[in-house]
Design a protein around this nucleic acid. Structure first.
Lengths: 257, 257
DNA sequence: GCAAAAGTGTTAGAAGTACACCCATGA
DNA sequence: TCATGGGTGTACTTCTAACACTTTTGC
């Protein structure tokens, strides 16, 4: 479908964007992957790639990243963070990847090296999103089950996860983009443990939650679980912004020294 | 000079690298800037730009950044960190910048949009380096005295400083790349104050230094100063690496939660 | 009643912050 | 001797980390 929409436009043959869209299913982190078109394989995790595209001459990088997610997964207007450019001359070493680019973009000349600008997005995997993903033949793959991807997309995903840690350190709100609107303390803890790759003490975690004013406990609890039902919490963005301020300026920052 | 060396090579007309090289003169932070060739101006801070260049087809992005600094400032093999890509379609809105690119790279066709990958380097401004800079007509401009630069280079420098803060938080050793081999506690404190944009308590700062095993006090002191002479310290990289470990993996990281 | 996960407080040590005076040197 | 910046210690607060048992629910 995206081909009909865009084949008239002029693709810049040297620059692309790729999007690492991260989701959290309550248990594991997942990445949104799409099939290389024209390649059908029974094996789920093969012949897949990150949603991405060459950029068009009329659009900024950020616009291109938004467009790609809209075209390939039906996702509109989410918070995309540019985190790294990948420009090794070897990243198009695999002929199948080169062929795919030429076919996908209806290019008449040989693809040379492509520099790609990688974006990160953290989203809630909800019904609407999974439905959209299905329609676009995109899927949410557990990070532990990602096979060999096209180009250097495995490396890009690696870097994305390294980036998240640093990013979350200065933007604690970011992880709440991954959690559902109503979440349990255990889900939140699991997410922190995955992010920081270490176990966290249950009691200390509860204490911390209770001290964060922007995490508000709800009356609602789990139902139908074969054990004591967990309380739901929600993230209150307004309160968060009051506390942390919304500016990202060079001033008003803290240090550990 | 660089034109003789490279004009045979094929420049990619869509992708460039730009380097923000930061130095510290003991008092202020400075950025390495070069003149737009063919433009001589009596005013120091005008018609200047970051050292940068289109990339050539045979080189990786990182290689291109290294090459640029070698060609434009005589600097070899330093630690360059890629921190952001700038790809607004408006960044080549100024005809003088476009003309400059076409002239500098002997291009026969119109320049369109150029996506630039920005790199950061933190260096010691020593005699050797200032001499090299002079030879290449590059200069070290105080951050407070940077005028209007070519392209979006003012914005790139802004982003570089925002990046440094975050980077230093997870790589405390980075600031010692800016300090001379022998430095006083006051120099170090000044650098931290500039980096974090806030005053730091003198006594607490000394306490902190004395607790960092990798900052070793020397016997040597200042001479010829009209006040009590300050002790020199040095940064011991080996000790630092023993303490912090050298891996940047996803594991072995700490959290504040 | 039992399996399975939720929830709850205290204590000790480490790290961070606030604060005021004497010291060494050159002019 | 004075002007200038260098260097030092203590008390208080906050943050972090370690640790074990009771509660609720479905089966």
């Amino acid at each position: 479908m995206q081909n009909e929409l865009t084949k008239e436009m002029l693709a810049n043959p040297h620059v692309s964007v790729d999007c690492v869209v991260i989701g959290f299913d309550g248990e594991d982190l997942r990445v949104l992957l799409v099939r290389q078109i024209g390649k059908k394989s029974s094996e789920m995790a093969h012949n897949m790639k990150l949603p991405g595209s060459l950029i068009y001459d009329h659009e900024d990088l950020d616009e291109a990243a938004q467009r790609v997610l809209n075209e390939l997964a039906g996702i509109k207007s989410l918070n995309l963070i540019q985190f790294h450019a990948f420009g090794s001359k070897n990243r198009t070493h695999d002929p199948k990847d080169v062929n795919w680019v030429e076919h996908f973009h209806h290019m008449d000349r040989k693809v040379e090296r492509i520099v790609t600008i990688a974006y990160l997005a953290m989203v809630k995997i909800n019904k609407k999103l999974t439905q959209l993903s299905d329609e676009h033949e995109a899927c949410w793959i557990k990070t532990t089950e990602i096979g060999e991807l096209a180009f250097d997309h495995n490396q890009i995903i690696e870097e994305a996860f390294l980036f998240i840690r640093q990013y979350v350190a200065s933007n604690p709100a970011a992880l709440f983009d991954l959690l559902p609107h109503k979440f349990t303390a255990a889900q939140m803890r699991r997410l922190y443990e995955l992010t920081y790759n270490r176990k966290m003490d249950v009691r200390n975690f509860h204490k911390k939650i209770s001290m964060m004013e922007y995490i508000v406990p709800l009356e609602e609890k789990q139902t139908g679980v074969p054990h004591r039902a967990a309380r739901y919490y929600k993230f209150d963005k307004k309160t968060y912004n009051k506390i942390h301020g919304t500016n990202k300026s060079f001033k008003n920052n803290s240090s550990t020294l």
